[in-house]
């Protein structure tokens, strides 16, 4: 029983970080129906930025979120105006190809700047745990999860309760409808894309403490992000959180009770089964019209 609870605790802590990592990609998809395949590269780029800053200033890497998230916001904003806007107005498929190209370029730049060797950020608490009875709470996972939850709560509040957030949702639903109430859709899309990349910026700082990374880690993370948002519901932020926690739990339980080698495969099997029953994902919204067509 203790082992099960311990596995669940670990799964939830990891799920918190996965939630943040996937939420940015889901936000971008929700607003402009663009699957940003460069999101994994942005995540790892942020991990490298955290690594370099940590080496240079010796601050707590989790605090460096305050630097990486705004920096990546600027990167996202510039990327939107330089590449994404033109590509998505030409053809939605072009946007996908463009983000794939950006991912490859970013990966190459990271390899040039930091090499292909594995890097990791290892603060003093990296291998320490809190103990509560017979349960262990790894400090790095716990702190990272708390930071991720705080950022996600802020992001959710921004999207749900502010004019900016509601204009983002309006622009996501209907471009012309949003323009007709005075929303400057172009600026809102740029802000949403930049926010999505900023979320990857924050997530990168957290994962740098939890996992070693190389430029090729982008492939693993983009696969994970896509799985989470498909499972949770494309375009749904609460769906990202649910999908992330479920996948993290499935990974933990599989590693503990089946075999660590199966930890990557079983969650994908779960996704296929869920999508057979709910093609829109667990928290994806279906309109009345969609249901009548089904």
């Amino acid at each position: 029983m203790t082992e099960l609870v311990q596995t669940l605790v670990f799964g939830v802590l990891v799920g918190g970080v996965y939630s943040l990592v996937a939420s940015g990609m889901n936000l971008v998809f929700g607003v402009m129906k663009v699957v940003n395949l460069a999101q994994g590269a942005m995540l790892i780029l942020s991990a490298y930025l955290t690594y370099s800053l940590w080496k240079a200033v010796d601050l707590d890497p989790l605090l460096l979120v305050l630097v990486t998230a705004p920096s990546m916001y600027v990167v996202g904003w510039a990327t939107y105006y330089l590449f994404i806007e033109r590509a998505r107005t030409t053809d939605p498929a072009m946007a996908l190809v463009t983000t794939f190209g950006l991912a490859l370029i970013t990966k190459g730049i990271m390899a040039l700047l930091w090499g292909n060797d594995q890097h990791a950020v290892t603060p003093a608490y990296a291998n320490r745990s809190f103990t509560l009875g017979s349960l262990h709470f790894p400090q790095a996972q716990l702190y990272a999860c708390l930071v991720a939850v705080a950022i996600l709560a802020g992001l959710y509040a921004l999207l749900r309760y502010t004019w900016l957030g509601q204009s983002v949702q309006a622009a996501a639903s209907s471009s012309d409808g949003a323009r007709l109430i005075g929303i400057e859709v172009r600026k809102v899309r740029a802000a949403a894309f930049a926010l999505g990349v900023a979320a990857a910026g924050a997530g990168g700082a957290l994962l740098s403490v939890l996992y070693p990374f190389t430029p090729s880690s982008t492939d693993h993370w983009i696969g994970l992000m896509l799985s989470i948002i498909v499972l949770g519901g494309m375009g749904s932020l609460p769906g990202s959180v649910l999908g992330a926690v479920l996948i993290a739990l499935a990974e933990s339980l599989t590693a503990a009770y089946i075999a660590p080698d199966w930890a990557t495969a079983v969650p994908y099997l779960v996704i296929i089964l869920v999508l057979l029953a709910r093609p829109q994902g667990l928290m994806g919204i279906r309109l009345r019209e969609d249901m009548s067509r089904a």
């Binding site: 004019w163 509601q166 309006a170 996501a172 639903s173 007709l180 109430i181 309109l287």
Partner: peptide
């Protein structure tokens, strides 16, 4: 597509005063 389906009725109406 005048309404925004993810927002509530209240939010949709209030957005009329966005400017």
């Amino acid at each position: 597509h005048g309404l925004f389906p993810t927002l509530t009725v209240r939010e949709n109406v209030q957005l009329g005063a966005y400017v």
